[in-house]
């Protein structure tokens, strides 16, 4: 019996850690919100500017990749939402041991966007994102898989993102 336990304990741990048994085998309970830090926007002012005055990321004689800071849209909102959640992961000391709990907590705690144009707001996550995340967690899905689906799948929770990327995952 002892030997059996020694064999299965790490296996169960791994299965739980990587979501092969859904959200960890325990019923999902929505966590209470905690304060989250809004990470500052990166400062691009020290990047060189191209002829149009946009900060340049890459420039060769074949390709120029620049950033037009005057344009805002769904991808900005996606990046901002992710940045908030990732900052929360760091603040909550996410690790392989507490992965599920921290992911639940941070999804729940991200500031909820107030409008349908979140790219014009302070970093936030649309309400639909938590709603879909919560529903999937109640269905015992793994947080990583849920995030991949609701943010980067064919029908993302960020307004306008699905149309912007042409519906491709």
């Amino acid at each position: 019996m002892k030997r059996w336990s020694a064999l299965w304990a790490p296996t169960l741990f791994l299965l739980a850690a990587f979501g092969c048994v859904g959200g960890g085998g325990t019923p999902f309970t929505p966590p209470d919100r905690v304060p989250v830090t809004i990470p500052p926007e990166p400062d691009l002012s020290q990047l060189p500017l191209n002829a149009e005055g946009n900060p340049v990321v890459v420039q060769t004689d074949q390709v120029e990749i620049a950033i037009d800071t005057s344009q805002r849209g769904p991808t900005n909102a996606l990046a901002a939402c992710m940045a908030v959640i990732e900052q929360c992961w760091v603040d909550q000391r996410r690790s392989s041991v507490n992965r599920i709990e921290v992911m639940d907590l941070c999804e729940r705690s991200a500031p909820t966007c107030a409008t349908d144009e979140p790219w014009n707001e302070t970093a936030c996550c649309p309400a639909a994102c938590w709603q879909r995340y919560e529903a999937a967690r109640f269905a015992d899905q793994d947080p990583t898989a849920i995030e991949d689906e609701i943010y980067f799948g064919s029908d993302p929770c960020i307004p306008g993102l699905g149309a912007a990327v042409g519906g491709t995952p």
Binding site: E41, N54, T75
Partner: peptide, 9 residues
């Protein structure tokens, strides 16, 4: 971060 503050060209 770059995506957060603008739009790639």
């Amino acid at each position: 971060g770059a995506v957060r503050v603008g739009r790639y060209l």
